[in-house]
Computed example of a mutant assay.
Amino acid sequence: MFGGGGMNPRKMQQMMEQMGIDVDELDATEVVISLEDGSELVFSDPDVTKMDARGQETYQVLGDPSEREGAAGAVESGDDDDDEEDAADDGGDEGIPQGDVDIVVQRAGVPEDEARDALEAVDGDLAAAIEHLE
């Protein structure tokens, strides 16, 4: 990051603190990146680092991803537009993306069904759902 090839890690940490940069290792068990085409990149047992530089959070994920078909790609019938409208209209489980549920579960520390209920209550607004649960 700063070209500290031979620099003492402790000295590097002190320099980062002086610049207002906070670095934390996260104990993540899985990281899922949902792509526009509906597929997902899944990092099992990744090394995740969170860096907070004066309020701007950046995450670094290290690991070997595997690719899998995502929830959006699993629905393969006729006309995609109709499927999306039906899911949005009925307000069922399909109306709330699993990725949003996962974010609320992680941030609020609640079970998945409770996170989904909170999202449905606030029409899918992530921030409002998390705030409601905390």
Results as ranks from 00 to 15, higher is better:
95 G>L: 00
126 L>N: 04
90 D>L: 06
106 Q>P: 02
59 Y>R: 08
96 I>T: 02
14 Q>P: 07
50 K>T: 03
123 D>P: 08
84 E>D: 10
68 R>E: 02
123 D>W: 13
85 E>R: 03
80 D>G: 09
32 V>T: 09
83 D>H: 06
47 D>P: 05
69 E>Y: 07
121 A>I: 05
58 T>H: 12
52 D>Y: 10
102 D>G: 04
11 K>M: 15
57 E>T: 04
50 K>W: 01
76 E>C: 07
11 K>D: 15
112 E>T: 12
16 M>Q: 12
16 M>H: 05
35 L>N: 09
123 D>K: 13
38 G>Q: 02
14 Q>C: 05
82 D>R: 08
75 V>K: 11
124 G>T: 06
40 E>T: 04
97 P>T: 02
128 A>C: 12
36 E>R: 11
128 A>R: 09
29 T>Y: 13
37 D>W: 12
92 G>A: 03
29 T>S: 15
114 E>N: 06
120 E>V: 09
101 V>W: 02
47 D>E: 13
86 D>C: 05
65 P>F: 08
59 Y>V: 01
20 G>K: 11
8 N>W: 10
126 L>D: 07
101 V>A: 01
36 E>A: 12
39 S>E: 07
132 H>A: 15
118 A>R: 00
53 A>T: 07
54 R>Q: 10
108 A>P: 09
125 D>N: 15
47 D>M: 13
67 E>P: 04
36 E>T: 06
54 R>T: 02
100 D>E: 11
31 V>E: 00
5 G>S: 15
4 G>Y: 08
65 P>H: 00
98 Q>L: 04
30 E>N: 06
90 D>Y: 08
63 G>K: 08
73 G>I: 02
119 L>C: 05
117 D>A: 14
128 A>E: 10
32 V>Q: 10
